[in-house]
Write a protein that binds this DNA or RNA. Sequence first.
DNA 1: TAGATTGTTAATCGATTAACAATC
DNA 2: TAGATTGTTAATCGATTAACAATC
Lengths: 211, 211
Amino acid sequence: MPKSIVSSPVIKRLPRYFRFLGELERNGIVRISSRELSERMGFTASQIRQDLNCFGGFGQQGYGYNVPELRAAISRILGIDAGNPTVLIGAGNLGKALTVHMDFNKRGFKLIGIFDKDPQICGTVISELPVMPIEKLESFCEKNNPVCAILCIPKTAAEKLIQRLTDCGIKAFWNFSHYDIRAVDGIVVENVHLSDSLMTLAYGLNNPPEK
Amino acid sequence: MPKSIVSSPVIKRLPRYFRFLGELERNGIVRISSRELSERMGFTASQIRQDLNCFGGFGQQGYGYNVPELRAAISRILGIDAGNPTVLIGAGNLGKALTVHMDFNKRGFKLIGIFDKDPQICGTVISELPVMPIEKLESFCEKNNPVCAILCIPKTAAEKLIQRLTDCGIKAFWNFSHYDIRAVDGIVVENVHLSDSLMTLAYGLNNPPEK
DNA sequence: TAGATTGTTAATCGATTAACAATC
DNA sequence: TAGATTGTTAATCGATTAACAATC
């Protein structure tokens, strides 16, 4: 059980561990040393051992780590099976793509409702979920108690909605609007700025390393 | 002109500066001090001055920074107007969403071609661009010389395509496949793992801070 | 000029890497 | 047991913050 506060760089690496261990497990690999894992993942062996030890001693001296056990442990730490009830706001192209592509169940979430303000879109069905009008947000939340909201709406709309959503009891935001939500109180936030990633790429193209 | 190598944390903050300065400019704000900018952006004033000084002295003692000038400078550093010719591979939901939503022209890129392997999708038109069969990739690249590829395809497909794309002269990858592309040689890469972001959010929900 | 705020150096902080004793 | 590899402490590295002299 994690007692002390684990640093943010470590936490951000956990999903990567989870991914690589999953692949190893699928390939039938049962045992791995920090050195071998480091070569596959591009971390140092030292860092891997440090990271994992934030959560407990999963390895065994002279042996290494048991892949399925370690993966299961990280899964528990991340809360992959929590099935946090989640609503998606904004059923445009991006919202639709996420609904269809993202395997929420295997990532700790369960999508239980989709909302949009456009009457044209309301009533349509995406991945077996009917799109509801945003006016029904409060009554829906009162009944179903979602804890997470995915925002696939424009910046201006987001600014207005956030208070409404926290009033509904939302504790986590996966935020694709361009408005930066500040993580306050007991609220957790992932502000995703795809265009920032794209501009970083532009920088790389525009500024080739010195030879 | 950037001569020395700027550290990666600084580079990753540039798009954020660019965003906030754009908003200030749109609000008609001409002048800003590092202190005031720090309050809006959530950085320290010290860090802002350090970051900007990696690229030159954009400020003026006793005055602060000129917003439009600074924004224009960062725009040049990032290469926002470069219009790097770009192809998108995979015209599924995500590829479509990116094509429609992302303002490539204002982020340093120009989308010039879309490819898919599904004959059903080929021939359809997205944002005025016809989806071409992946077989035509080589001939298209020879003629139009794209430097960037956006990958919206499954992991297995990505593994196979990367060599083909680098052979076509692709220098930058905006990669949404779950395969991690390693940045080698003169290749720049942004591996986007949306599910990693989602799992980080799961961790936050699952591990509330100690009281 | 006086006040404000940068550019830049120095101090601190935190994260990564190296080393090695513990131990399977 | 001997060999291997972890867990963990110590050393290093790099990034952030603080401080202040330079200067508009």
